[in-house]
């Protein structure tokens, strides 16, 4: 469970397709920023999405997509101190309206963490 589910959020759109969720953000935000799939917000939520992944700002609220395998995509907004920080981070990164290729280079080879074993999962 990501921290999003423990925060106070508003649902704007639920159980929809990712593309419809993106269009909603584009039409209903004061500012729209485009990030890569996997962009991290609120400490531990990595946005699942199809490029270009839109993230919106409206006042102090951050508007973003939230996708669950069994329930489809949602559009959520969160307005608090952390959302203001996230909006400022997006503004600084200057990705507003940037629709250029969002598929960046593949991540470099890195230290691999061993996957949890089957037995570890079974203990849960």
């Amino acid at each position: 469970m990501s921290c999003i589910e423990q925060m106070k959020y508003r649902i704007h759109l639920e159980r929809t397709s990712f593309k419809e969720a993106r269009e909603y953000i584009e039409k209903n935000s004061d500012e729209v920023y485009y990030v890569s799939p996997g962009y991290k917000i609120f400490k531990d939520y990595y946005i699942i999405g199809i490029p270009p992944v839109a993230v919106g700002a409206k006042g102090n609220a951050l508007i973003f997509t939230y996708t669950k395998p069994c329930y489809g995509s949602f559009v959520l907004s969160i307005a608090n101190e952390d959302s203001v920080k996230e909006i400022n981070r997006l503004r600084k990164s200057g990705k507003e309206k940037e629709l250029a290729s969002l598929k960046k280079g593949k991540p470099p080879e890195s230290t691999r963490a061993p996957a949890a074993s089957y037995q570890d999962i079974w203990k849960e």
Binding site: F18, G38, I48, G49, T67, P107
Partner: peptide, 26 residues
């Protein structure tokens, strides 16, 4: 994978709905 702690050579992504396709695209 995003934090570069692991990765794979081959991925088979199962999908029967838009969310599954969205996960695979990610």
């Amino acid at each position: 994978i995003i934090e570069e702690r692991t990765d794979f050579n081959i991925c088979f992504a199962f999908m029967h709905n838009d969310a599954g396709m969205t996960y695979a695209t990610t």
